[in-house]
Amino acid sequence: MIPVVLGVTILIFTIMYFIPGDPVKLMLGPDSTPEQIEAKRADLGLNDPYVVRLGKYVGGIVLEFDFGDSWVYNTPVTHELLNRLPRTLAIALASMIIQIIIGIPIGVFAAVYQNRFWDRLAMFIALIGISMPEFWVALMMVLLFSVEWGILPPFGIGGIQYYILPVFALSLAGIATQARQTRSSMLEIIRSDFITTARSKGISQMRTLFRHALPNALLPVITVIGNGMGRLLGGAVVIEAIFSIPGVGMYMVGAINARDYNVVMSSVIILAIVFALIMLLVDLVYAMIDPRIKAQFAGKRRSKNNG
């Protein structure tokens, strides 16, 4: 995981280095004189060579957990990120959970009743879910729940009711993906020999499905869930913009427009770390479920100890 994060850091730093657009000109406004601009640039260390700047930045993070200061807010980025990260994470994680809780049973259902009414209905809904863009869904939900019925707030933060619409808008496409993925995985597994063995034992249909079929079917689904986290983190930006939720996404987008380098880079790094952690978690869950993977890890560890 560490090489990944380091690589992301260097990559995003380099990208920001080369993007046209001078943050200082934006900071000082259209009236500013060239002398003012130069002075500011020197002040912020923007005239130092690439390697020096990179070194200073990475050094700051690794040695002091200091992501630098935001030029727009003039506050330490670390502090602001700590405030904003829970909001973004909460939206992304809650969406992920909702996706799992709703999407997987739909997929199982569709697989069991394959090609019959429920399957077709479930897949139709899934198709719609994937096709609708998140911001459109979000605005439609706001129109319905906030304007028409007035039961949920249309934007902002302040309590759990403010997160209900954002989470559902974000999770809709994910539910659809999850359902389709689970369905196709289940259909494959149901044809397996060990399912026939299970049936021949005389156990109930329910037990066959949930004890034998589903755990095996979930293996590829888990990977998809992990990958989906990336989509969720990205989608959180759109959702944050629509619902005016001050999370990491909005922080980052605003900073990109203002060329607030520290904020952009730090946000990207934080999100990369979160994503890497999620993938790690996915791997661990995988190992937990599938003893073959667990054996691989154990084997490696054993041979390391022996060798």
């Binding site: 994680l93 799992i100 869950v285």
Partner: peptide, 29 residues
Amino acid sequence: MKKIVFLTPVLFLFSIGLLFAAGQGDSKS
């Protein structure tokens, strides 16, 4: 498998908790 079944509601409650916490810090009296 059982572990997953336990894990899901735990994760769910955790994220609800996160949302609460995130919301709580900002609510007015």
